[in-house]
């Protein structure tokens, strides 16, 4: 029977095999037989992931849940907003980026109360900037 756990097991097993067949041989230097072999742990991780993926397929429990489509869409929106913010940070500096991120959050959360919206939009970025750059003397750009 196909259920969420079993599908996850297939994905895990697939990744484990990819790791063993392609990623480890291509991106890790192997010195077989040497106690210092750099590929020992990546290979061990590959075998573990493959074996456990197989175990999950075989021993899958009925049921299991997956995130709702609407929730997943919201998650993707936040991740995209964060990614864009990270990309633009070196170009625009922290405060404009932080305000942009807060606007995106307010839009995604549909906050309409002016006082709380203003707090999120102005006070929060300024507080974070003040904490890191003034109190802790860490550069944010």
């Amino acid at each position: 029977m196909i259920n969420a756990d079993r599908i996850q097991g297939i994905v895990v097993l697939g990744f484990g095999i990819t790791l063993l067949v392609w990623l480890v041989p291509t991106y890790v230097t192997a010195v077989p037989g040497n106690p210092l072999d750099p590929s020992l742990f990546p290979r061990a991780a590959g075998w573990l992931i493959s074996g456990l993926g197989l175990a999950q397929i075989v021993l899958a429990r009925p049921g299991g849940s997956v995130p709702a489509g609407k929730e997943f869409f919201g998650f993707v929106c936040f991740i995209v907003a964060l990614g864009v913010a990270a990309l633009l940070l070196p170009l625009l500096g922290f405060l404009p980026i932080a305000c942009g991120l807060m606007i995106a959050s307010l839009v995604l959360l549909r906050e309409r109360r002016p006082l709380w919206a203003a707090t999120t939009l102005i006070a929060v970025p300024f507080f974070v900037w003040f904490l890191f750059t003034v109190v802790l003397s860490r550069s944010l750009s």
Binding site: L82, A85, L101, M102, L106, L109, A117, V124, W129, L131
Partner: peptide
């Protein structure tokens, strides 16, 4: 305190913290 302030603040702290 409303989550519309708390969560974006926490998000921004994560963002700034991982940058430094």
């Amino acid at each position: 305190a409303p989550g519309t302030v708390i969560y974006p603040a926490a998000m921004l702290l994560c963002f700034a913290g991982s940058f430094v």
